[in-house]
Design a binder for these strands. Structure first.
Length: 105
DNA sequence: GCAATGACTGGTA
DNA sequence: TTACCAGCCATTG
């Protein structure tokens, strides 16, 4: 998709990312299953092209590590939102920060 | 149609 | 903990 406008799948992914409450995160695979289409690679592709318009730092890998090349920026947002981090690493505590898309808590 | 690529994932060393 | 490998899914050349 080299179009200059987001596709339907793209809008769905972006909608989920924007729906993630502060202090919470979702993995690429979780979002892929949430929208019920494609896979983690497709979500990542959408984020690389359109992630700039959504809180991309709330989307992390299964390890709790933010997107490659954005760890520093993501770390600032986590500190500002109070995201549960793991011991002195730049990784998010998925056990507590993982959002299921439910009631937000 | 095939090969390479990517903001991925899970398992093994 | 990090490093490497195989699998997965869609786009691109």
């Amino acid at each position: 998709m080299t179009d200059d406008v987001p596709d339907e799948y793209t809008e769905e992914v972006l909608a989920v990312v924007e729906a993630i409450p502060p202090g919470r995160v979702m993995s690429y695979g979780d979002i892929a299953e949430y929208v019920g289409r494609g896979g983690p690679r497709q979500v990542g592709s959408v984020m690389s092209r359109w992630g700039g318009g959504v809180p991309w730092w709330r989307v992390v890998r299964s390890d709790g590590r933010p997107a490659s090349g954005h760890e520093v920026r993501a770390r600032s947002h986590y500190a500002a939102e109070g995201t549960p981090m793991r011991s002195q690493s730049d990784r998010v505590d998925m056990t507590r920060a993982r959002w299921d898309g439910g009631s937000g808590a």
